[in-house]
């Protein structure tokens, strides 16, 4: 009876496995392959390309910031280590281009002043509702952690920026809705933001659509994870340290256990037993052996 049961279980396992496998391969079909590029920040030793980050900020500033806020970043982040690393003077000049509301002053009134390094990035709209109202009901998401808030991260954002196409003939688009290969449902309310030459790079880099998409995506990845470089660096050191410590602890453990006899204690005892059995069988002392 148990043998039967055993075979039955085997069959079920195989069945479940096969069906599960087919199921998962079905799911694979609907997956879209994102466009990828040679990101410098990927991998264990990944770091940001400073020039790309600086250009990326320019693209954000000139193209995106009209609608997309970045409320968790401060102007000081622009010169802090691990980021675009503008000089402090440049970062101050960037901040000073923006007006922030401060106050109340001694008369109890709010007033406008130029932004300082300690201020957060100025938002294009005072709140989510105002942003949605100004954009035909679609709220342009805050970009501070956007690269972490989308499946696919950098690749997704890069692909989306390059994914605008003419819609297939069977799809009707309403006014103010655009077709994008990589948007879920393929319909997006943001018009194609990057067209060749949309910005003029200060460092003379050709502002192609791809170049701008790459730069602004790099900038967004940094914005979402400003300590990425520090994390990678520390991680490498920690790993090196842990491997050394693990080796030492392992050797110490072997030493300590050797006090208790051989590390293969059981094996040794087995040999003792077999030896004893052999002795009984042979009627002589096999100790001389080996």
């Amino acid at each position: 009876m148990l043998v039967l049961l055993n075979n039955f279980i085997k069959k079920i396992v195989i069945l479940i496995f096969l069906v599960g496998f087919n199921g998962s391969s079905l799911a694979e079909e609907s997956k879209i392959e994102f466009i990828s590029t040679d990101w410098t920040f990927k991998g264990v030793f990944g770091t940001f390309d400073r020039a790309s980050l600086q250009r990326g900020y320019q693209v954000y500033q000139e193209v995106c910031s009209g609608c997309h806020s970045m409320q968790h970043l401060s102007y000081r982040n622009l010169y802090e280590k691990g980021g675009p690393e503008f000089s402090e003077k440049e970062a101050k000049a960037i901040a000073a281009q923006f007006e922030v509301t401060d106050g109340p002053n001694s008369e109890g009134e709010m007033f406008q002043r130029p932004a300082r390094l300690s201020d957060k990035f100025v938002k294009p709209f005072p709140n989510v509702k105002a942003a949605a109202a100004a954009n035909d009901g679609a709220y342009p998401p805050d970009m501070s952690v956007l690269a972490k808030a989308r499946k696919g991260g950098a690749d997704y954002i890069y692909s989306l920026l390059l994914g605008y196409e003419d819609p297939p003939s069977d799809i009707q688009l309403d006014d103010g809705v655009y077709y994008n290969k990589f948007m879920s449902g393929n319909k997006i309310k943001m018009a194609q933001p990057l067209l060749d030459g949309a910005v003029e790079y200060a460092d003379g880099t050709q502002a192609t659509e791809k170049q701008m998409a790459k730069d602004v995506t790099t900038f967004l990845v940094w914005a979402a994870e400003p300590h990425l470089e520090a994390r990678h660096k520390m991680g490498f050191k920690v790993f090196l340290f842990l491997i050394i410590l693990l080796t030492l602890v392992y050797l110490s453990k072997q030493k300590v256990w050797s006090r208790f006899g051989s590390k293969n204690l059981e094996e040794e005892e087995t040999f003792d037993k077999i030896e004893k059995a052999v002795t009984e069988y042979e009627g002589e002392d096999p100790k001389t052996f080996k």
Binding site: H232, M234, G235, V238, F239, L242, V249, Y250, F260
Partner: peptide, 24 residues
Amino acid sequence: PYMVMKDLVALLTFILIFFGFVFF
């Protein structure tokens, strides 16, 4: 010290995996 040492070996291996997630 026997089990403590063995536990430490295992713990450090575990931490290695754990920190693999944390840092990378």
